[in-house]
Simulated assay, not measured.
Amino acid sequence: MPHELSGYLADFVQHLESEKRHSPRTSENYQRDLLRLASWLVEHDCTEWRAVSGHDLRRYVASLSRQGLSGRSIARHLSATRRFYQYLLRERLATDNPALDIRAPKSSKRLPRVADVDQLNSLLDALPDDPLEVRDRCMFELMYSSGLRLAELASLDVDSVDCKGGEARVVGKGSKTRILPVGRKALEAIGQWMPVRAGLAPEAETALFVSRRGDRLSHRSIQARLSRWGVAKGADQKLYPHMLRHSFASHMLESSGDLRAVQELLGHADISTTQVYTHLDFQHLARVYDQSHPRARRRSGHGYDDQNSEREGNV
């Protein structure tokens, strides 16, 4: 590789570590992405950073897309390139930033996975086998009851939940506080957990959910316990905390159709974040339509395709 390509790149990485105080891992990520660009430039007979044009970068983005990189990954490559050219401009090693107007292709938005209502009811109705499972069921009931994020659940204190009023005070992203309703089943689970907690937590501990040692339960521990609960209680898919939040949102929207209310309950600053659940709701409506409308039903085994399967494959 020509020295101008590799040498300037090495100087940039040194700049990130010494002046910008980036971690070695962040610097390595920049270096990896830019080395990939430099190798592509060499293959296309370009040996100077100052000679790279916007047209060259568009061709590079197209090549990354053909190689199967997602829009998000390509956006990361372009971000590294823009940052690198800012450095080159500062050092007067380039005359413009050819990456400024280049945009990555949009990735198709992945829909969050949700659990079936009946399966969740079955899992949450399963009886705990030991005191720690009493805690686990309480955590999962509360997460599904109120649509909590993992961090919100872990940060709950004993006085965060008003069992008489049936509500919880939650601190979400941006340290924003919201008051959420807590369902009957979750309140019952809290009532069963509190006597167990009293035998584990020291008097000074404020956390609602504590470990066997009596200290606040970590995020990782909550994730591991939910996965364990799913396996022990016969879930047909791996359970993770955000699935319970997704399931809460989707099931609420299916029943109420009130997107604004679901936005408030989830603590989304922008309703566009909540709108992903309208796609999930449409899948539910589409299944109902396919199974119910007399002009939509196709009988399998009589030369017809299963329209429900066909629709799900296209969503």
Rank of each mutant, 00 (worst) to 15 (best):
R21D: 06
S65P: 02
G54H: 06
A94N: 10
R59T: 03
D96F: 13
R58F: 00
Q119F: 04
Q67V: 00
D125S: 14
L64N: 08
E19M: 01
Q31C: 07
R103V: 03
L124S: 10
H15W: 14
R21L: 12
R103C: 01
H55L: 12
R72H: 10
L89T: 11
T81K: 01
R83H: 14
F12R: 10
P112K: 11
D125Q: 15
D129K: 15
L124I: 07
S108F: 04
V117E: 04
S79I: 09
D45W: 10
G71S: 00
S53F: 03
G71Y: 06
S122F: 11
D130E: 14
N29R: 13
A80N: 13
L124A: 05
R36I: 01
L89N: 12
R32C: 06
Q86V: 09
G71L: 02
T26H: 09
P128V: 03
C46A: 10
S27W: 01
A126P: 12
V114P: 04
V42C: 13
L41E: 00
G68Y: 05
D96I: 06
L78M: 04
K20H: 13
S79C: 11
K109R: 15
S79Q: 12
G54C: 06
K109G: 09
D45E: 15
Q14E: 13
D130C: 15
N121S: 12
A104L: 02
V13Q: 08
L57S: 05
T47H: 15
P105G: 01
L78D: 05
S18K: 11
G71V: 06
A38Q: 08
S65T: 14
D125P: 09
S107I: 06
L69R: 11
H15I: 00
F12P: 04
E28C: 04
D45Y: 14
H77N: 11
R92K: 14
L69I: 01
Y87K: 06
P105I: 02
N121R: 14
R59H: 05
R103L: 08
E91H: 08
L120M: 13
S70N: 05
R103M: 01
L127N: 10
H22S: 11
G71P: 08
P24I: 03
V114I: 14
D125H: 13
A75F: 03
E28V: 03
R58M: 08
F84Q: 08
H77P: 00
E91Q: 14
E43H: 12
F12Q: 08
D118G: 10
R36F: 04
W49A: 01
R110H: 11
A99L: 07
S18N: 10
A99M: 03
L35P: 07
A99S: 12
E91K: 11
R59G: 07
R59V: 00
L123G: 03
Y30K: 09
E19D: 15
L69T: 04
Q67E: 10
N97H: 13
K106L: 09
S70V: 01
L78A: 04
L35C: 13
A115C: 13
L127F: 08
I74Q: 01
V42Y: 05
R21G: 13
R110D: 07
D129Q: 15
L127Y: 04
L123H: 11
A104K: 04
G54F: 05
C46R: 15
S107C: 00
V42I: 13
C46E: 09
A104R: 08
G68D: 00
H55K: 15
T26L: 03
S65K: 13
L69Q: 06
P112F: 10
